[in-house]
Simulated scan of single mutants.
Amino acid sequence: MMRWTTALLVLAVLWTAPALAGKRVAMVIGNAGYGVNDDLSPLPNVANDVPAMVRTLRDLGFLVIADTDVDKRRFSDRLLELKDALTLGERPEMVFVYYSGHGMEIGGRNYLIPLGARIDRKERARDEATDLQEVLADLAEARVPATIVVLDSCRNDPFGKGRGPRFKGADANAGFARIDAPEGMLIAYATKPGTTAMAGLPDETLSPFTQVFHRTLAQPGLSFQQVLAQTAAEVKRKTGNRQSPWIEGEPGLQSIVLNGRGAPPPAASAPAPAPATTPVGVVRAFYAALSAADGAAAVRHVIAEKRETGPYVSATITAFYGQMSRPLRVLDIEAADPGMVLVRYDWTHRNGRSCNGQSLVDLVERSGAVLIERIRVLSGC
């Protein structure tokens, strides 16, 4: 099965401290000028996305390797240049690689498409395009402290309307395939895996995601999780909920602050709280994570099979509860029955919506841990 996309790739190397002050290296690649030596549709907004990202990254202290409209050989040259920057001389604390251009997925592997690629059948992708998973594996070998991947996907018609050969039926599905984040890596998508992102909006010259993301990335004191949460909320608003950014990977890396200027000094570390072991304790911890807009912490209290899609996805929780003018507050909580907890709460969203709700939470025991199986809204929201 193949899915066509336009991909924005951001790879950033992180560490476990709240902010990084060491050597920073970035690679920015953007492909806009398709349609000359290939059958792909041009992406004019990419020509504006790239300089916006370069300016932001330089302001954040990155040494930037940049190139535009690259064929496969030049793409490979830039990747080798980046690899040298990561392995020779002073080891960077952070590397940030941005790609904007067409991409596609075949059989679970994602490909970034350089200019001049002639892909008239799916088997040619391996020769004509750049394998994203191989790029990530090469970066992992550099053993930089950590990595963030952001995929701004996806335009589902890279060939344009009738411009050239197109794959049909089961081979022509929208969206990048989800990638399990390697150790030390975050993957943030501009929209949910398997769904499409918009190339642009009327009277705007950048893609909806990059326009919000590069501006939010520059704000001082924000963790990467907060950057994505704010970006997600704004992108969903701008696109009428047609595009919903998403993040996955090691929760501990999501607290990284890329712009520490003006950030408050880090608080003294405190011992980690003991894990909740009772139904009421688990529900209390879950709603505390909602109040803090900490999706990664919240989903740890939910059964694994519900963390993949729907309202229990980490990025969905972070994005929604990160936009509260008054955070969620638990008003009352009590055991209703063995394995069931009744909770009453309220919150107010920045869009003006308020909630005073009551829910019944069902819990089960899995491998010695008490986890949330489902939440039934009884009143309110």
Rank of each mutant, 00 (worst) to 15 (best):
L57I: 13
S76Y: 12
D294P: 00
G252W: 05
T5K: 00
P193Q: 13
D180Q: 14
L14T: 10
R366F: 00
G61T: 12
F286N: 10
E183M: 08
V144A: 12
A146S: 15
Q358M: 13
Q254W: 07
V330G: 09
S153L: 14
T68Q: 11
G368W: 05
L43E: 05
E93G: 14
Q225Y: 10
W15A: 15
T6G: 14
R73C: 02
F213W: 13
A19Q: 12
Y321N: 06
S269G: 14
A297Q: 11
L253P: 10
V46W: 04
P51T: 03
W246N: 10
A174L: 12
A85H: 14
P311C: 04
R261K: 14
A232F: 07
G200A: 06
L79M: 15
W4E: 11
A7Y: 06
A232D: 08
G35A: 05
A369P: 05
P265W: 06
G339Y: 00
A174M: 08
L14Q: 09
C381V: 02
M104L: 15
V361I: 14
E93H: 11
A218D: 04
G322P: 01
G322F: 00
E365A: 08
L20D: 07
A276K: 08
I148Q: 07
V144L: 13
V135R: 04
E105R: 12
R126C: 07
G33W: 06
P264L: 10
G240A: 08
G295D: 08
A296T: 01
T16Q: 15
I148K: 04
G322Q: 02
N351C: 07
A125N: 03
V135N: 06
D120W: 03
M185W: 00
G368Q: 09
R178S: 11
D362M: 07
A197T: 10
K236L: 09
I29L: 15
D39P: 07
L328E: 09
G240Y: 00
P266D: 11
T56Q: 08
V330C: 05
S223L: 07
P271T: 12
Q219V: 15
T68L: 04
P271C: 03
R344G: 05
